[in-house]
């Protein structure tokens, strides 16, 4: 047999990926669902924290604001293994949060990814909201908006950037391995996600299967991006219209 280098594995991996997807391999399905559930939850929680935090910093002036921005920018680049190590120490039996019995659970994985995702979502939100034209911000006030209405109008103006914040958050969660490996433990059927499975398979020399999972991971990220972008485009005009129903008049 002629040795083709890595290309051979990649070729077989592609084939194997299609095989695994279309045969509905239960183990792959379970691993994929764990990844989706953990990273999806971390992304949503990250957005629930990151968007309000990022927007508040962008819209308010307060002491230590610059310092806070620097902190967020630094946290955006947190190395996952460091987060994993820190949470491992916190959550382990002898750690301060050991009583929660979270180590090696999917919840611990969500927590780890949340720590990674929230600053990223906050940072991208911060820049998106800051970039809304100052004249538009003033126009919202001039039109009579109260502070809450003003924030809504500005966030709607920044909606593409907010979507980017969520997408980037999800991308970093689903592709992350170091943190969930340490606090999740890579237990089959419980805490084994796509990325941790890939690492394991690679260590075992099962390159074809590893590549197959890699392709599923990539496809998944792509599909979610398409979905979010589609939703975004569809609601583009609808968002302002939806405001009327939820509207509360202020005297």
């Amino acid at each position: 047999m002629i040795y083709l280098g890595g290309w051979e594995e990649i070729g077989f991996g592609l084939f194997r990926a299609l095989q695994l997807i279309f045969s509905g391999d239960p183990e792959v399905l379970r691993i994929t669902l764990i990844s989706l559930r953990v990273s999806g939850t971390a992304t949503l929680l990250g957005a629930a924290i990151g968007i309000p935090v990022g927007a508040s910093i962008a819209l308010r002036r307060f002491p230590a604001r610059t310092l806070l921005i620097s902190v967020i920018n630094t946290l955006m680049g947190l190395p996952p293994v460091v987060v994993g190590l820190f949470l491992y120490l916190m959550l382990s039996n002898f750690g301060p949060m050991g009583f929660l019995r979270l180590l090696y659970t999917p919840e611990a994985m969500v927590l780890a990814q949340l720590v990674l995702v929230a600053p990223i979502t906050a940072g991208v939100t911060l820049s998106a909201v800051s970039n809304v034209d100052a004249r538009l911000k003033e126009m919202a006030v001039s039109l009579g908006a109260d502070p809450l209405q003003e924030v809504r109008i500005i966030l709607r103006e920044a909606r593409l950037g907010l979507l980017t914040a969520v997408i980037v958050g999800f991308g970093s969660a689903i592709s992350e391995v170091g943190a969930i490996m340490m606090v999740g433990g890579n237990l089959l059927g419980y805490t084994r996600a796509l990325t941790t499975a890939i690492v394991l398979l690679t260590n075992q020399g099962a390159f074809t299967e590893a590549i197959a999972l890699g392709i599923i991971l990539l496809g998944l990220a792509f599909a979610i991006n398409i979905l979010l972008t589609y939703l975004q485009l569809r609601t583009k005009a609808g968002l302002f219209a939806a405001e009327t129903e939820r509207h509360h008049p202020v005297t």
Partner: peptide, 16 residues
């Protein structure tokens, strides 16, 4: 604002 003509003209009324 980056939306439709209707939503722009309506905004001040919606706010009120």
């Amino acid at each position: 604002f980056d939306t439709t003509v209707f939503n722009n003209v309506a905004l001040g009324l919606k706010i009120r």
